[in-house]
Measured scan of single mutants.
Amino acid sequence: KELVLVLYDYQEKSPREVTVKKGDILTLLNSTNKDAWKVEVDDRQGFIPAAYLKKL
């Protein structure tokens, strides 16, 4: 599985998104959309803007 590093805090703005903190390391589920990547956070799945993430 692929991991990503969170570069900036992000507060979810819709039910399809998830809230993350800078420095979190998350499982990347889908990065086919260049604008928003799907990740898993504490058994929740949701989207975060790709600009907030860096592949490890």
Rank of each mutant, 00 (worst) to 15 (best):
V18Y: 06
R44P: 01
V39K: 01
N33V: 05
A36P: 03
N33Q: 10
Y10P: 01
R44Y: 07
R16A: 14
K21S: 09
K21N: 07
L28F: 03
E40T: 08
T27F: 11
L53Y: 02
E12L: 14
N30R: 07
N30M: 09
D42S: 10
N33Y: 10
D43L: 09
K38R: 11
E40W: 10
A51T: 11
K34P: 15
K1V: 12
E12D: 06
T27M: 10
P49K: 05
T19Q: 05
G23P: 01
Y52V: 12
L56T: 04
S31A: 12
K21P: 00
A50G: 07
L29A: 03
V4I: 03
V20C: 08
K21V: 06
L5F: 07
D35A: 12
I48V: 15
V20E: 01
L53N: 00
K1T: 11
E12H: 09
K54E: 11
I25G: 01
P15L: 09
V20M: 02
F47E: 06
A36Q: 14
Q45C: 11
V18H: 04
V18P: 02
A51P: 08
Q11G: 07
L7R: 04
K1Y: 13
T27S: 08
V6L: 02
L29Y: 04
K1Q: 10
D24K: 06
Y52I: 13
E17D: 06
L3E: 05
S31D: 14
D35Y: 15
L56G: 01
K21M: 08
T32E: 14
K22V: 05
I48S: 02
K21Q: 08
V6R: 01
T32Q: 13
V6H: 00
S14I: 05
Q11E: 13
E17P: 09
F47Q: 03
T32K: 11
N30T: 08
E2H: 12
D24C: 09
I25R: 04
L7W: 03
S14A: 09
V18T: 04
D9F: 04
E12G: 15
I48M: 11
Y52K: 04
D42V: 08
A51Q: 13
Y8A: 14
L26H: 05
L5C: 12
D42Y: 10
E12V: 10
L26A: 07
V6K: 00
P49Q: 04
R44N: 05
V6Q: 01
D35P: 02
D43N: 14
L7S: 02
Y52H: 08
A36E: 15
E12N: 07
W37F: 03
V39L: 03
K1N: 10
I48D: 03
I25H: 02
V41K: 15
L5V: 10
P15W: 08
E2G: 11
V4Y: 05
W37T: 00
D43A: 10
W37Q: 00
P15R: 09
V18M: 14
A50F: 04
E2D: 12
L56V: 09
E2A: 12
D9C: 07
P49I: 07
L26R: 03
L53S: 00
D9Q: 03
F47M: 07
K55A: 06
Y10C: 04
L7K: 04
E40I: 12
S14H: 12
V39C: 05
R44E: 04
L5A: 04
G46Q: 07
R44G: 06
E40Q: 15
L29H: 03
T19L: 04
T27Y: 12
L28S: 01
D43T: 10
G46W: 13
Y52S: 04
Y8F: 13
A51N: 12
E2C: 15
K21R: 13
A51M: 13
E17M: 06
L7F: 02
L53Q: 00
W37R: 00
P15Q: 10
I48T: 02
S31C: 14
I48R: 02
V41N: 08
A50S: 13
E17Y: 07
T19G: 05
L56W: 08
K55Y: 08
E17A: 08
D24G: 04
W37D: 00
A36F: 15
D43P: 03
K38H: 12
E17K: 05
T32Y: 10
K22F: 05
T19E: 03
E2I: 14
Y52W: 07
E12C: 14
K22S: 07
R16T: 13
N30H: 07
K21W: 09
L3S: 06
K13N: 09
T32L: 10
D24R: 11
Y10T: 00
K1D: 07
K55E: 04
D43E: 11
E40P: 01
V20Y: 10
W37E: 00
Q11S: 12
V4P: 00
L7E: 02
D9H: 05
D43H: 11
T19Y: 05
Q45N: 07
I48F: 02
E12Q: 15
N33E: 10
R16N: 14
A50R: 12
V4D: 00
L28D: 00
K34L: 11
V39D: 00
K54H: 11
N30W: 08
Y10F: 07
V6M: 02
Y8R: 14
V41A: 09
G46F: 15
E40V: 11
D9N: 08
N33T: 07
A36H: 14
N33K: 08
K38D: 03
K38P: 00
G23Q: 04
L5P: 01
T27K: 13
G46E: 09
T27A: 08
K13A: 10
G23K: 00
V6D: 00
A51L: 11
N33H: 10
W37M: 02
L26W: 05
A36S: 14
L5I: 13
V6T: 02
K34A: 13
E40D: 05
Q11I: 14
G23H: 04
L56H: 04
L28T: 01
K1C: 14
G46L: 15
L56A: 03
V18N: 03
D42C: 12
E17L: 06
S31K: 06
Y8G: 06
K22G: 05
V20D: 01
G46H: 11
